[in-house]
């Protein structure tokens, strides 16, 4: 059980949700937008979150869109990872989102919730980082559309009351060749339980007309796409070994070193992943 009380609101429009947020905030109720709610429930149970009010966004029509519109894929922030996966509209996102937690929990976790998560992996964002995703946000000043990379560094840079409505991706990115993988610390345990191992590293590679884009999660304290690293990967003048060595130097933060894996082991996995991924793309010299 959750050991404290909070108020529950389920608005039917984005404007109502934003207005509610500011109203509740002015009453010092620490309001939180509530998508799937898995993280709010889990952290509240553990005394790590104390909202006095939650605003369920699943009743907002704009947050429930999942379709192509004018050559753009539009995904509502309240769409669950399972709904995105079942739609099969963006296979790379299917794979990234399809590795979060387990299938039943993905029936509850929303795309917006995963990307705004406090948990470091947030794997769904990897597909969006490499595909020039734009984010549509509602706040008290109205709606704005911004490139994902402009509001994401180590986490989503949202102002209090900013409500994620939708993510949009150009259709051509949804059909580009890609390679993605997730390495766990233990691997197969017993059929069908091969999810036990703690997630170690997730990587995605998108082949944009011969130019490789890459993003990683689990390697550093936050998911990232590094243009510097991509420049190394796409440099045809350096040898494969040099690419691997230089790539390690391009990481935006030190490699994680914790009880699940040493930094040295993560680096080893990262190098192998890079080699395997680049080898996977036909026509890309490596």
């Amino acid at each position: 059980m959750i050991p404290f009380d909070f108020e529950y609101y389920k608005p039917t429009s984005a404007q109502e949700a934003v207005s509610l947020f500011h109203n509740l905030r002015s009453q010092e109720k620490n309001p939180m937008y509530y998508g799937g709610g898995t993280e709010i429930i889990s952290f509240s149970r553990l005394y790590q979150l104390f909202p006095k009010a939650v605003i369920d966004v699943k009743g907002i029509p704009e947050c429930n869109v999942l379709e192509f519109k004018n050559d753009k894929l539009v995904i509502g922030a309240a769409k669950t990872l399972s709904q995105v996966q079942e739609s099969n509209l963006f296979p790379l996102l299917n794979q990234c989102g399809g590795r979060v937690a387990d299938h039943t929990i993905r029936d509850k976790i929303t795309l917006g919730g995963n990307i705004c998560s406090r948990i470091p992996f947030r794997e769904a964002i990897l597909a969006l980082l490499v595909s020039d995703c734009e984010v549509i946000i509602e706040n008290k000043n109205g709606i704005r559309k911004v490139p994902l990379e402009s509001i994401y560094t180590e986490s989503m840079l949202l102002e209090p009351g900013d409500l994620l409505l939708q993510f949009t991706v150009e259709k051509n990115y949804t059909v580009m060749p890609f390679f993605s993988m997730k390495k766990t610390a233990d691997g197969d345990v017993d059929y069908p339980q091969d999810r036990i191992g703690y997630p170690l590293l997730s990587g995605v590679f998108l082949n944009n007309k011969g130019h490789i884009r890459a993003a990683f999660s689990g390697l550093c304290p936050y998911p990232f796409r590094s243009l510097k690293l991509e420049a190394v990967l796409n440099d045809t003048t350096v040898s494969p070994d040099e690419k691997l060595n230089e790539s390690v130097q391009c990481l935006p933060a030190p490699i994680l070193n914790d009880m699940d894996s040493s930094a040295q082991y993560r680096e080893f996995v990262f190098r192998n992943t890079l080699a395997g991924a680049l080898d996977n793309f036909e026509g890309v010299e490596f």
Binding site: Y8, G36, G37, T38, I41, S42, R45, D56, K58, S82, A101, D102, H103, T104, I105, D107, K108
Partner: peptide, 27 residues
Amino acid sequence: CKNGDCGACTVLVDGWPVKSCLMLAVE
């Protein structure tokens, strides 16, 4: 587990499996 890990509390919501320890009753 009451943490969404074990699945012992799974129920169907509109035909889809959901871990009921990770869902509010009002939802």
